[in-house]
Structure formats: C-alpha cells, structure tokens
Design a protein around this nucleic acid. Structure first.
Lengths: 187, 187
DNA sequence: TTCTTAATGTGATTTATATCACACCAAACT
DNA sequence: AGTTTGGTGTGATATAAATCACATTAAGAA
C-alpha cells in the first residue's frame, strides 16, 4: 500500500491525485523476506527505502565482528546507508529484515529529478531531513549525557512500539550497551 | 564579510548578484564578544546563525551542571539549537562565544520565506541538511563503536583546524570523555 | 517430533573511564 | 606587578559496564 507514503507527504504538503501518481512513478516496489539483505557492506547503494510493511535494521559491523545498529525502520520510516547513498560511494552499513517487509525504492537520480521538477517535493524532503537531523542530535545527547539505564528508558518512552517487535539484543546494540548489561537493567 | 555565505551557497547552486543580494536581505548581522551568550537555555530561539568570523559552541548543561557540547561552529558553519528553532520551542541548549565572533542571523520566518520564493534556496538547504544528517550519523557511529582514544583521533583527523583553536577541556566535552581521561590519552 | 538456532538471564571477573584531589602554568584583568 | 581565572597534567580510588562463561527457554527448520 502506497497510501501510507501519500499520507506522510501530505502531512507536510497537500497533493492532487495526479501529483501523487507522478511521484509514485519514480519508485519501484520490493518485497524482502525475513533475514534477507536489502543492502550489504561494499555494494553500491541503489536506493533510499520507504517501508510500507515490516521491520528492518541498518547496522555497522566493526573489525571484531561486533554489530552497532545505526537505525531501525518500520512502517512509514525511511532507511538506507545515507552517507553512501548521497555521496554515491559504497555502503559501509548492512541492512536486513527483522520481519518480512515491503519497501518502495527511490534511486538518487529519481529523487533529484523529483526535487527539481516539483518544488513541493524538495520542500517535503527538506522538512524530513531537518526532522531527521534533530532526532540524531537527541540521540547524540542521550549518548553523551545518559548512562545505559537512562538511555534505555528514553528509548522505551520515545518508541514504545519498537519494543514489541525488536529483540532486546538488538535494542542493546542500538543503545551501545552489551546485551548482558541491558538484561540486568530491565530487572 | 558575507561573501563567505555566497561561496557556500554557490558550491551547491550558482547565483546572480541580484539573487544573492535578495537572499542577504533576509539576514541580519550580529557581533558577539568572547564569553558572551548568543542563546541561553529557556529562551525562544530567534535565529539560525551563519558564522562569518570567530568560534562558538552549543552545549547542553545537565542536572549536575555538567556540560556536553552538541557542536562547535567556526567560519562557514551554521549553529543554533535546531530542535527548538525548527519546532519553535524554547532552547534547551546554550550557545556562547569561544572567540569574538560575527554571525549572520536568519529567522525561521525568513528562512521559510526564502525557501518558498526561491526553489534554489530550498534546494541549498535540503543539501545542507542531508550533509548534516550524514555527519551526525558518523558521530553516532563513533560514539557507539570507538573508545575515547579512537574518538579523539577520529576528531583530530576530521577537524584538524578545530584543535588549534579549542581548548582540550572542550574537546573532551564534545567527545563525551572527562578532561582527565583525554589528558592521559594525549600523552 | 527432534534438532538446531536465537533470545534471554545471571554469576564472576576484568577493564575503561569517571571522580576526587592537588599542583603547575599561562593568560587575562585591574 | 600582582591577582584571579582558565587550561592542563597526574596520582589514587571508585564505578559502570564489558567480557567470559554457562544455563534456560523459546522459536524455527528438517
């Protein structure tokens, strides 16, 4: 269902049916099974992904094989390796499915074309990017200022829905704590 | 000197003299002395600030009175409390001058007006915001994945100019390490 | 069902970093 | 010139969290 994308855009700017149809024509659809990769480290990053169904994670794997989760994405969220996507370099992140998912794929070329053609859409993406920037600043502040327990509680409060779907092990990896420490905090 | 702003914009999109003059008319100038506040916690956030001269820091002060630096800004950088600026809420960050500074001030109203009037400028701000988002992701990854020493070395490599101007104590506060630990690392 | 894999809890130990305390020096005021 | 303030180094100690190790349970796969 692409209605969910339309709704997201319309929270920022109204669209006619024609306009939305035009926008949507720049996306392709993709279904991914559980545990399947959407993106692997070292590959070129083809797309930004808008999630219409399911749940994914983008994560970095370091030299020791430890995973650090950059972001989750469920319905109505966007996900990709943005550094690589915007700069057209190879991915340093992996993205794979926590649950079977469906996404709408937007290549950088189509994104830029849409933005050039429709001032509205450039406005939409600017607003989304600003909101994303602010969200990351909050996360940084949380990392700088709070200990493991506080970060856990903040996340729980901010994204309660996530907890019903994401195993604690992955929450730990997102928070930058070991799964053992997180386990001890909950109790 | 506002030429520095023009150069920054022209890295993304070319401008005529008229266009730049029009853009600049939406900014006001401000000079700030060393140690003076540009913004204090609890205030309304009037502007986003483009630095033409000097060096500033934006930081959060927690319940215990400990400072955590969200960002620095020197010539050619932007700085404000973005969460509060974009959402028109009161500041949770403080901004003050490390060196005597000069800034160009852009209110949210003028920013939105410029973006609505000139597609070019909306494009510029979208690009800047995207780049900012990517930079914050890098910082998060650094916080998740690296210890104090590694983070220090990464920062040193990424912003070598900063080190000649910012005391180590503040670098520590940006990295999320105590000044004592940072001091021991350097040696 | 049985087998394997993923998720979780919990003890014992180690380690990175924070905290406390004090000394020293350089810069800025007055 | 003298006095305050800001920046820095370094020892001793405390603490949050990582790591290692093992047990338990739940969930998928054959």
């Amino acid at each position: 269902m692409s209605e969910i994308l339309r709704q997201q855009i319309e929270k920022i700017t109204p669209l006619t049916d024609k306009e939305f149809e035009y926008i949507l024509s720049h996306f392709t659809r993709k279904k991914i099974k559980k545990h399947q990769y959407l993106l692997q480290e070292g590959e070129a990053v083809q797309n930004d992904y808008f999630v219409t169904k399911g749940l994914l994670k983008a994560y970095y794997v370091n030299q020791d094989g430890k995973e650090h989760i950059m972001q989750f994405a469920m319905e109505d969220w966007w996900i990709t390796d943005y550094q690589a996507y915007f700069n057209e370099t190879n991915a340093t992140l992996n993205i794979d499915c926590i649950e079977a998912s469906e996404v709408l794929c937007l290549s950088l070329r189509n994104r830029e074309k849409l933005c050039a053609d429709m001032h509205k859409i450039e406005h939409f993406f600017r607003k989304k990017s600003n909101a994303g920037y602010v969200a990351l600043q909050r996360r940084i502040l949380s990392l700088l200022n709070s200990n493991a327990k506080e970060r856990y509680e903040q996340l729980l409060q901010q994204y309660p829905l996530l907890f019903q779907r994401v195993p604690k092990t992955l929450i730990a990896s997102y928070l930058g704590v070991s799964r053992e420490t997180l386990s001890r905090l909950s109790s």
